[in-house]
């Protein structure tokens, strides 16, 4: 199993690497396009601000590469948001893999949403063995609107897509690497896709 975590400078990827290590898989950090193309599985992480992260992707040419990947790709948090059409954060154009836009939570609720919330309407092999309304750890100020490609939904002010899938591309808004045993199960499911 060759597992690559795309290392383009956005955020804390150590936790993701450790989470896979607990599953017995040594994930490789890389921004090398050939290496990414030949991986069995690819993780697209991201923490921070959307437009800055997108600039980093463009500088390394990864913005052109990621949408053409054929193996299973899992975007986490900002990684998932960057796979969408656009984000209100920094008025950013996304990679356009998921046909949905990313919006900011209104001031009706506290922003960021920080903590454990449930995911439901689960519709993917990614969630094999995960029960409806399982708790996941989330930290985010922006959300993907509910849409046809949603494979999990979460409610915070409104119902939004907390996970997305299109063909070989998967995205999760929550942090499976920080979501206890159940989060770890989701990462294991991804390895088994």
């Amino acid at each position: 199993m060759k597992l690559i975590i795309i290392n383009y400078g956005a955020g804390n990827i150590k936790s993701i690497q450790f989470a896979f290590k607990r599953l017995g898989v040594d994930a490789i950090l890389s921004n090398n396009i050939d290496e990414i193309r030949t991986a069995d599985k690819v993780i697209f992480p991201g923490v921070g601000e959307a437009s800055t992260a997108m600039k980093m992707l463009q500088e390394s040419g990864l913005d052109k590469v990621i949408p053409t990947l054929k193996q299973p790709v899992l975007g986490i948090c900002l990684g998932m948001q960057l796979m969408c059409n656009s984000s209100e954060e920094g008025d950013t154009k996304g990679l356009g893999i998921f046909n949905v836009n990313v919006k900011k939570f209104s001031k009706v609720v506290k922003v960021p949403q920080m903590g454990w919330n449930v995911i439901y309407d689960l519709k993917s092999d990614l969630f094999t063995g995960i029960k409806e309304k399982e708790f996941m750890y989330l930290v985010h100020s922006f959300y993907a609107e509910n849409c046809e490609e949603a494979i999990a939904t979460t409610d915070y002010e409104i119902e939004y897509a907390s996970a997305l899938q299109k063909d070989n591309f998967y995205g999760v808004q929550f942090h499976p690497e920080k979501s206890g045993v159940e989060g770890s199960k989701i990462l294991e499911n991804f390895l088994n896709l």
Partner: peptide
């Protein structure tokens, strides 16, 4: 496998960078 915060004596970008690189959330 749950999030954690580190505090105490942090006063610079370098301090924070080092902690986050070690895996603090």
């Amino acid at each position: 496998n749950i999030p954690f915060t580190v505090g105490g004596g942090i006063s610079s970008i370098e301090d924070v960078d080092a902690l986050l690189k070690c895996g603090a959330d």
